[in-house]
Write a protein that binds this DNA or RNA. Sequence first.
DNA 1: GTGAAAGCGCTAACAG
DNA 2: CTGTTAGCGCTTTCAC
Lengths: 338, 338
Amino acid sequence: MNLTIYDISQKAGVSIATVSRVLNGSDKVSEKTRQKVLSIMDEYHYKPNAFARGLGLNSMQTIGILCADSSDIYLSKAVYYLESKLQANGYHCLLCCTGYSREGRQASMQLLLNRKVDAVILAGSSFVSNQAEENAYLFEAASHIPVMILNAELQHPGIYCTLCDDAHSIYTAAKTMLTSGRDRLLYLNNSRSYSALRKLDGWEKAMKESEHTTTSSVLYCPVAHDDMEEMCVFLESNASLLLSYNGIICANDALAVAVVKFARKYHLNIPEDLAVIGYNNSLLATCCEPELTSVDNHLAQLCDQLVQNLFAVMNKENVPPVSVYYGELVKRNSFTDF
Amino acid sequence: MNLTIYDISQKAGVSIATVSRVLNGSDKVSEKTRQKVLSIMDEYHYKPNAFARGLGLNSMQTIGILCADSSDIYLSKAVYYLESKLQANGYHCLLCCTGYSREGRQASMQLLLNRKVDAVILAGSSFVSNQAEENAYLFEAASHIPVMILNAELQHPGIYCTLCDDAHSIYTAAKTMLTSGRDRLLYLNNSRSYSALRKLDGWEKAMKESEHTTTSSVLYCPVAHDDMEEMCVFLESNASLLLSYNGIICANDALAVAVVKFARKYHLNIPEDLAVIGYNNSLLATCCEPELTSVDNHLAQLCDQLVQNLFAVMNKENVPPVSVYYGELVKRNSFTDF
DNA sequence: GTGAAAGCGCTAACAG
DNA sequence: CTGTTAGCGCTTTCAC
């Protein structure tokens, strides 16, 4: 029932080559026959068969997006920005949630490669490990198609990274707290991804610089990204530790919200008794009371840049392997002394 | 550089037909030759060309997921559940964000149809309109491939709906508030989607049943789903109205959070002075203080059922056109008298 | 069971 | 500028 290029060529009184040419916007077609063909296509609502086209062109204009969990409040934004930008450029997105296991990542990557996507975007830093051998699948993929990484850095031919300098953001946040006079600081996180490690670097650098005047510690909260109840339980089980600090910096807003809830339960005033800084400047930051001062890492901009880089790469243009941006501390009421 | 079915057939000393047969799990191959072929495939890491396969089978095992905005805290969950379930069944997902305009919806649908996806899933009720002519694109699509709708109902051959009875949920929520003694109720919403209209139905039914003893009103908040600041601005601009109620039911948790913030600003105690009920039982419900009593519509279950229905449909099994579930009011501290 | 051969619908030389 | 033709890699009759 679907018309083919043969039907159109016949009805238009030209060869299939000519039809194919107007289909692909070749300039080697006279304006007259082009119009003729176009009008026939239009009249019969002709749509080329995408599979045949894919076979001929070895591409279906599809980008694979890998992400650990597209329901994560931060990653879902990333996916949305990426998809919008890609769609605006005539590309489609194959979304593949991998979970947080190594096997999941590798299996999903393989699936996308087998489907011959034009490129792959890794949304989130969980895709690069600090153990070299765990990144081998990325190198392998990069030998076939462009590999674009959001929020992590990995130098290798064919791999292009777009990220925010998380170390710098956390460093700045910590320094700002110190400058404001907070002298007992805690860093709360819940991940060991690339980005998480970089944040830790920034934290450690700041602490080292003021080790003689500051008490500090790091707390790891092994709870799923959206399980507020468990986060609260965890914090309460560490109550005595938490109560000994007057400033807490969190690796994401959900953790910061949990800290706010903890503070309320223990009758601590925020920010007077306890200053809190979140990360990602998500919707959560404005849902609690007081609202969270939080690091904004300009995700929309990162995604824009990543897609722009991707098209440049596919266009054989010269693209820097790493594009780094800086985050920004957005002031609200959980920490105001700056 | 990629091997083809010809290479494999040659190395295995069989014809391409046989290779194709083992590829497709045909039982018309002797166990011996099957093993031979499989071992060769394995040895050379053979992966069939997905485009050629698509052309031959007229399918690339791909489901299109349409959603207005995959960064919406509720829709992102839906997309995640759907993708996981689909992936577990060997299918891939083409994600297409449409925005909230009619043109966006139709254009995206057309894109997916042109790509010959095996079916399409519409995540979210914004895809069905109460104006019949705006649903024509769905009927058109359904004449080609299965159309699965999440959270909306539209009866038509080839269209299968999976939803929660939102009218019932809101009706129950309102009734519960009335039973608890609240007599001045406000319904706050921000959408006119199918689901939004059904919620309104439930609301109106409840209000009609108690019109002699209750003061009630509906307020429409024309603000983007994730713009807490604007929601708050809007509520404050309607402060005198809001202050005249002692119970507010919201069409989603974000609005309910905004109400909680409003109450704090105006020194209203929740739930004593003002009871609040949210909707979706999302992460937001546990981020504010007090936490939100909220309607949970069992999204994960809905998505599971939808995908199960989809496979049944593709399998030519008999599937009910509409699968309806009931929501559940999850009790937290913004409304406790039940 | 297995193989030969004819498509699937389009792209891209190549020739004119 | 336009048409002829040979693929692209796989599926699927139809004989044997």
